[in-house]
Simulated scan of single mutants.
Amino acid sequence: MSNGDREQLGGFLRARRAMIRPESLGLPEYGRRRRVPGLRREEVAQLAGVSVDYYVRLEQGRGGGTSPEVLDAVARVLQLDATERAHLHRLARPPRQDAAAPAPTELRAGVRLVLDMLAGPAFVLGRCMDVLAWNAPADALLGLSGIPADERNMARHAFLDPRARTFYPAWEEVAAETVAYLRLDAARHPADRHAAGFVEELSARSPEFRRLWEGHAVAEKTHGRKLLRHPSAGLLDLGYETLALPGDPALLLVVYTAEPGSREAERLAGLTAAAAVRTPEHDAARPAVLGGSRRDAGPSA
C-alpha cells in the first residue's frame, strides 16, 4: 500500500469515526469530556470484535491482508452505506495499480445521435466531470458552447466560477455532492495523474473545495434533483438521471428531466426554441450561464 493509499484510508476512517455519536451505540460517557468527537479507536475495535492494535494498524494503513469480514464489521460500526462500504474495501485492499488508461475524449457516433434524439437537456461527462458533448437543450440551459474547452467542467464551474452560487440556489448541497463524487471516482482510478492534479488545483484555489475534500465523504450521483436559477428562464426545479455508457465505463450520460406539462417543461422548451432561432446579434447579447468568454464550439466537443 502506497503512502497516498494509507493517507486516504486513515483519513476516511477518522472522518467516519468523528461522525458517530457514541450514545447512538449505547456507549457511556464515563463522566468526562471526550478529547475527540465521535468514537475512539478502542471503541471501534471493541464493537467490531478486533483488538485495538489491529484496528490502529488498519487505520494507519498497516493492516495488509485485512479480511473482508473485518472490514464489514468496521463498516457496520461506522454505519457506512453501501457506497461507503465498497469505498472502504477499495482503500483497504487496493487493486493492482497499473498505468492509468488515457481518459476518452472522443465519443462514438451513436452516442452523439442519442444526445441529439433526446428532447431534454443531456450531456456526457468524462473523468473529473469534464463535459465532452451535449445537445441543443443542454446548451440552451447551461451555455456550454460558450465555455473554453479547457474550462468546460462541472466541478470547476461549481467552485471557481463566482456565478455558481447564483446559478445553484442550493450551492452548498451541489458542492458537497460534487466533492463526494470526485472523492469516490479518485479512489476508483488511483493511478490517474490528471485527476490528482485536478484535485490539487481545486484545493489550492478554493477553500470550500479543500474543506469538503478533507471531510472524505463519498457518494454516487446516479439520480436526484437540481435547483437552477437561469438568467432568463428563472428558477427551475429539475430531476436528473446519470447513466453509465456501455463500453465506455469512464463516460456518463446526464439527462435533466421535467414533468410533462410542468412549468419547468414549458420553460425548457422555450429556452430551446429561442436558441434555435438565435441570430449572431442575439447570441452576442445572450447572458452567459456556466462559463466566461464565449467561443463558438458547436454542439459537441
Rank of each mutant, 00 (worst) to 15 (best):
V218D: 04
A73P: 05
G143M: 00
E266D: 10
V124N: 10
L235C: 03
R16D: 02
A140I: 06
A258M: 03
A196C: 02
A136E: 15
V131C: 10
R127D: 12
A170T: 15
V131D: 01
R165H: 07
R210V: 02
V289F: 00
S2E: 12
P162H: 06
G120H: 12
S203P: 02
F123K: 10
T272I: 02
H87S: 05
S2V: 01
A175Y: 08
R225P: 00
L71T: 08
P148H: 04
A75M: 09
V111W: 10
D5L: 01
P102K: 12
S145D: 14
R32F: 10
Q79D: 12
P148V: 01
H223Q: 14
F209Y: 10
D237N: 14
G197R: 10
P68Q: 08
A101S: 11
A284N: 03
L25E: 07
H89P: 09
H216I: 00
V179Y: 05
I147K: 05
P169H: 06
M1C: 04
S2Y: 01
P287W: 00
R34K: 13
L115P: 08
G61D: 10
G126Q: 09
Y168A: 04
E23L: 07
H216D: 00
V114K: 01
R14T: 13
E23W: 01
P169A: 11
H89A: 04
A164P: 06
H87A: 06
E264F: 01
E259C: 02
E106F: 05
P231E: 00
A195L: 12
P231N: 03
E281M: 13
W171V: 04
S293N: 05
T242S: 15
A265E: 04
V111F: 09
D161S: 10
E259N: 03
A265F: 00
R108I: 01
G38P: 10
T66E: 00
H87Y: 13
V174R: 14
G61R: 11
A164Q: 10
A175Q: 03
G291S: 03
S2N: 15
R152L: 13
R163S: 09
P190L: 06
L253F: 07
A273C: 04
D53K: 11
L39C: 12
E281P: 10
L228E: 00
P37T: 09
P22K: 04
L245G: 09
V131T: 13
G291H: 04
S293R: 14
E177L: 15
L268R: 03
R21D: 15
L202W: 04
